[in-house]
Design a protein around this nucleic acid. Sequence first.
DNA 1: TATTGTTATACTCTATAACTATA
DNA 2: TATAGTTATAGAGTATAACAATA
Lengths: 147, 147
Amino acid sequence: MGSTLTPGVPTTADLMEAVAAVGTAYFHDFAAAAARHGLTSSQAKALKAVQEPVPMRALAGRLGCDASNVTGIVDRLESLGLAGREAAAADRRVKIVTITPAGARTLEAIRADMTRAHEAFGSLDEEQREALGRLCRQVLPLLTGGQ
Amino acid sequence: MGSTLTPGVPTTADLMEAVAAVGTAYFHDFAAAAARHGLTSSQAKALKAVQEPVPMRALAGRLGCDASNVTGIVDRLESLGLAGREAAAADRRVKIVTITPAGARTLEAIRADMTRAHEAFGSLDEEQREALGRLCRQVLPLLTGGQ
DNA sequence: TATTGTTATACTCTATAACTATA
DNA sequence: TATAGTTATAGAGTATAACAATA
């Protein structure tokens, strides 16, 4: 499946497939950890994005979805007692989402619960961690287009 | 944000965040490419999984979802003329999903259309590609739990 | 007029359970 | 009885459009 010209050096297509496989497996681990605590991955992602108070509109930006979706996601977090809404003093149109103590505890528990991810990245030595971190930093801005 | 003990060497938490960011950006690029061709990411993923004929049940396994979902996904691909169902000769219960010539063209177009991903992974030199590929191969089996 | 958050609507993905036709 | 595919149902995520309150 690799390049036939230079054995061991993957082609761009090979690399994309390898990165996609790692990404899929990582998100699977994340979703499983969230589910163990009664949350979907979107809800867990929102909880993570709300560690510091964030207006609804800005939260939509962080989650990469339309603002209309955030209403339902925050509704569910609120009904679970994990997040709350506060009116902004400066502009009475905006509502600021805050995490509750229970939400912070759940978030920490999910992080600690990502056992496979910890095993996987913990298995790398210093040199490998440095290399992977550097490669991610190089690749990411091109993938996101600078945003 | 990095380890304060060894500058340049990311902690496990840092690495997870970096990999998650790359994974997110990659899947965003994939979804955008699929959307440009009128498909959702699940549909594009299914099309990719069906390059060789696959029974419905096995397709569910490849997509990591329940078999009941596959019916709808393949229905939509079929209505777009990108895939088809054939009865299996050996066991008349099983239906085998096949990709059509139009489906194969669409899949190839989506692959070619992943512009940001090509830029990102194409920017790496041979040594970097080899390192990234090797790191993915080391990390993946731990993330998937051996499956 | 423009913006923030919400609601209404519609589609897709997802799982569970029940059904059918085969085996 | 067991299995493959489907259908029915329900919940969640997603986008678009329209709306009320505020700026």
